[in-house]
């Protein structure tokens, strides 16, 4: 178990490192640099020279990567190419805001998805299942920006209950994001609930049809006891991975939602930094997102293993 953990951590570190190289190469390969992106059609002569001098862009790419990597390992993510501000400061607030959005959606979405998924599986093909499944299909297939725009239209333009756009600056205290953050959380909840719900439903249905469930039934175990003792524990294991993926997606910054609602999170910052060719910021965010993906997936695997005695012993025997 412990050996496996270390191996996975090592692999994770390598993944993150590879991601940083790919991102660096990708941004390098895009036409233009931070200076031409900023200066647009004034990117000529002295102005361009001064800018490149200031940002150290006239040094070879390899040197710049090496310097960045050296700093990153020591926990120093460098300074933003444009604002000349420390990145940890810039990204910190954005990460916090994305966390707020993500945790809001998770707190609302995960219990809701589990509940609705189990209900629609237990009453399969009944009216409640048909209604829930149909709504889930809608929530999954309508693009987020459409549902976002519709919600803004109804709740902020027509009814005037909540503000449509987030105008709170990135570094404001968390409390100030209410009630502006409610609409984006609602949209995210809709999408993620639908995804998780469908997995829960199919895996509960599968467990209900399994031999051990039938065996329990034949032995005369009461229906609800069978559901809670035998079906749900087995059925919910696979959903841990789906939930983990969803969490990773949420923490990676939901670009479309953040743009539509003008929300100052990681996703919008990533897009802005790419179009500004602000390599240090892009790198830092990519690093965070990659780490989150690796970390959350690792956590999910460990949880699955702890919850499943068979997997646990298999690894012990192997290791």
């Amino acid at each position: 178990m412990l050996a496996m953990l270390f191996r996975r951590l090592g692999l994770g570190a390598i993944t993150v490192w590879l991601v940083s190289i790919i991102i660096f190469l990708g941004v390098e390969m895009l036409p233009g640099d931070a200076c031409t992106a900023f200066l647009e059609r004034e990117a000529k002569g002295k102005l361009l020279e001064n800018c490149r001098e200031d940002l150290g862009l006239n040094r070879p790419a390899l040197t710049r990567y090496a310097e960045w990597a050296k700093g990153a390992v020591q926990g120093d993510l460098g300074v933003s190419a444009k604002g000349q501000k420390p990145i940890s400061e810039l990204v910190g607030y954005r990460l916090r805001n994305t966390l707020l959005l993500a945790s809001g959606a998770m707190l609302a979405g995960i219990p809701l998805a589990l509940f609705l998924g189990v209900v629609s599986a237990l009453w399969r093909d009944r009216p409640v299942d048909i209604v829930v499944s149909t709504l889930a299909i809608f929530a999954m297939t309508i693009p987020e920006f459409v549902s976002a725009t519709l919600l803004i239209l109804v709740f902020s333009v027509w009814l005037g209950w909540v503000p449509g756009i987030v105008l709170t600056p990135a570094n404001a205290p968390l409390v100030e994001f209410f009630p502006e953050v409610l609409l984006p959380i609602t949209v995210l909840t809709l999408v993620m609930t639908a995804h998780i719900l469908r997995t829960v439903r199919s895996s509960v249905i599968e467990a209900l049809a399994s031999e051990y469930a039938q065996m329990a039934c034949l032995k005369g175990v009461p229906y609800w006891q069978m559901v809670f003792r035998h079906v749900l524990p087995n059925a919910l294991l696979p959903t841990i991975n789906v939930i983990a993926l969803t969490i990773a997606w949420l923490l990676g910054g939901v670009v479309v939602i953040e743009t539509v609602f003008n929300y100052p999170g990681l996703g919008r910052m990533m897009i802005d930094s790419i179009s500004d060719r602000d390599l240090p910021v892009t790198q830092a965010i990519a690093l965070i997102i990659a780490t989150v993906y690796v970390g959350v997936n690792l956590a999910a695997d460990i949880l699955t293993m702890l919850a499943n005695p068979r997997l646990r012993t298999m690894h012990i025997r192997k290791g």
Partner: peptide, 10 residues
Amino acid sequence: ARLQALLGGQ
């Protein structure tokens, strides 16, 4: 988003 902000009176 700017148009939405105008429509919503922000």
